[in-house]
Design a protein around this nucleic acid. Sequence first.
DNA 1: CTGTATCCTTAGGGATACTG
DNA 2: CAGTATCCCTAAGGATACAG
Lengths: 140, 140
Amino acid sequence: MNRITKRSDCPINYGLEIFGDKWTLLLIRDFIFKGKKTYGELQASEERIATNILAQRLAWLKRHKIIHKSPDPQKGSSFVYQLTQKGIDLLPILLEMIAWSWKYDAQTATPASFAKQLLTNKEKLKIEILSALREGRQAA
Amino acid sequence: MNRITKRSDCPINYGLEIFGDKWTLLLIRDFIFKGKKTYGELQASEERIATNILAQRLAWLKRHKIIHKSPDPQKGSSFVYQLTQKGIDLLPILLEMIAWSWKYDAQTATPASFAKQLLTNKEKLKIEILSALREGRQAA
DNA sequence: CTGTATCCTTAGGGATACTG
DNA sequence: CAGTATCCCTAAGGATACAG
């Protein structure tokens, strides 16, 4: 994060430099699966991100066009954060991570029904998740 | 890495705790795509991992059953590191990262032919990569 | 509610010397 | 070649106080 010197032009390395920190993918998860949109919602995650880190990470993600920030039409002093297409396109990575963890971590909190659909009908699942995201519903 | 307190039972978080550091996925990349097997080969990556970090990371990966270590049948004093099934199963995550980086990073060093196959025929590509891995050939 | 600003701690990582 | 052992340093992250 915020590193100046790029280690290499490897695509894996590029991904790591953009979202390979301790918090970014959890935030993306909250955007995609929990339909979160505001600072307060994002801060209230199970993992308890510190407020300064959250602000820093949102700025970073904005800078890299993963999210964009706009004034909340309802409330004057509030902002809405939303994933860009670049951010939404991280979904396949998250899904593969979920599949892997589901397979290898006994503790993982993935519902079996979700995991099953992930294994048998991934494309349909993606469509459902994205449509929930568009409508502001919660996908999981 | 080496954290004691688990942040949550979220599957994304599990993945991050196992391989969400700066080096692990690059090492997995070298195992899968470059057919690397020995300490020396792994150390000679483009990104120049430090020797102590490499040793530490290999121990971590062994501990979490991502790789296993065995004596090299050819050379007495040498060891061979190989991915377990759990490690091999990280391939889909790598592939999605490559696809994403290829789409969004102009600098990325992914051959267009590879990217095209990744988008149009992912399953076939996986099979090819895994068969190259099994035969000790280099996949990319 | 949405952030800044500080202060502080620590884990992660780089460099390099050294060993069987 | 395949690692250990040190030393050091910085960036990343936690806690908390404060401000618009």
